[in-house]
């Protein structure tokens, strides 16, 4: 039996009737146009599906859509502010923190979570803070540089 839910994503409200078993990541990706949130694994390991749920990073593959009823979410598509890239997006670009780009939306949002708790992280802090996100292309090094760069940019703001 379907359940009515109302989820605000990137400032827009989505009211839908969903099967209770539907994973949040599938709900988001099936809305049409919000496919930046990726499914990279099925065991909550890779972090490609990371989104901000009421401001907090969660793995949307390990969350049912019904659990997010009433929540306000940010996906990668909602991170830029009216066309101006978020400093983390700028930093990933500037520091070559991505190659194939598949892990990148999740990696950026996990980095967002990291900087929320620790605005001035060391390289080791960054490496530990990203332990829930896998990247197969970059060896993480430029991701670490990007997060550090973003932290500096945000500090100057």
């Amino acid at each position: 039996m379907k359940v009515p839910i109302d989820i605000t994503i990137n400032g827009r409200s989505y009211q839908r009737d969903v099967e209770p078993r539907q994973l949040l990541v599938h709900f988001i990706r099936d809305l049409g146009g919000l496919t930046g949130t990726k499914v990279g694994c099925d065991t909550s390991q890779c972090g490609s599906c990371t989104v901000l749920l009421d401001g907090v990073a969660v793995k949307s593959c390990t969350c049912l859509a019904v659990q997010a009823d009433g929540a306000s979410m940010t996906t990668i598509e909602g991170l830029a502010d009216q066309g101006t890239l978020h400093p983390l997006q700028e930093a990933f670009w500037e520091k070559h923190g991505l190659q194939c780009g598949f892990c990148t939306p999740g990696m950026i949002l996990a980095s967002h979570e990291l900087l929320r708790h620790n605005p001035d992280p060391s390289d080791a802090d960054i490496r530990h803070g990203l332990e829930g996100n896998l990247c197969r292309c970059t060896g993480y090094q430029n991701i670490v540089r990007a997060v550090r760069h973003a932290a500096d940019a945000l500090a100057e703001k």
Binding site: T35, Q89, L98, P105
Partner: peptide, 11 residues
């Protein structure tokens, strides 16, 4: 990168 860091690339 612009399309990849904004989630607007199409896989």
């Amino acid at each position: 990168d612009p399309r990849l860091i904004t989630g607007s690339a199409t896989y």
